[in-house]
Amino acid sequence: MLEIINRTKEKFRLTDLKKQRSDLVFFAVPRKEAVKIITYLRDLENFTHLVLITAVDYPELNRFQLTYLLHNYNNAVSIGIKIMIPRNKAEMDSIHHLWAQAATYQRELREMFGINFPGSPGIEENFALEGWDDIPPMRRDFDTKAYSEKTFFPREGRISYDPREYMKVKLYPEDKEE
């Protein structure tokens, strides 16, 4: 694992290196170099399995963090590659030429986060939401409860408890008296 990281470090500029487990390492790379590094890892370091592509929304930083998780079957090690992209120009290079199934992840990311991947096949098609016309629902500034109440027909009579308070009363009624 260490050798792989060192070899990669020689060639590319890796920041924010974090060893999560003995067989799992995360690092951040600039957006421009990301596809190059992924290609390098796939072709020269045997990371042949694309485990997942996911995104995290950081509205306070005005950024999305894309995470590509790759797996190497020879050494049974995984690498997570983090890429920060700006929130107002959410665009990333497609990697569907490396793994065909990446196109599906990219369709999902475009629909759920609004991150565009120009050139990815079928990127314009609906994935799970057919006819969505609001802001992408997985962005954190999207208020899902308000949307649900506005769009669907809530039935009267739902009571919500704070789970912590509720279970405290339920499980330890004697504590309440103190």
């Binding site: 799970a128 939401l129 609001d134 629902p137 999207f142 899902t144 409860k145 949307y147 649900s148 109440e149 669907f152 027909f153 809530p154 039935r155 009579g157 739902r158």
Partner: peptide, 19 residues
């Protein structure tokens, strides 16, 4: 199907099917 159940505030789960 009655009132959305545990997904009642989801953006994509309809709350009551009888509408």
């Amino acid at each position: 199907t009655i009132n959305g159940g545990m997904y009642w505030d989801s953006y994509n789960t309809i709350n009551r099917i009888d509408a």
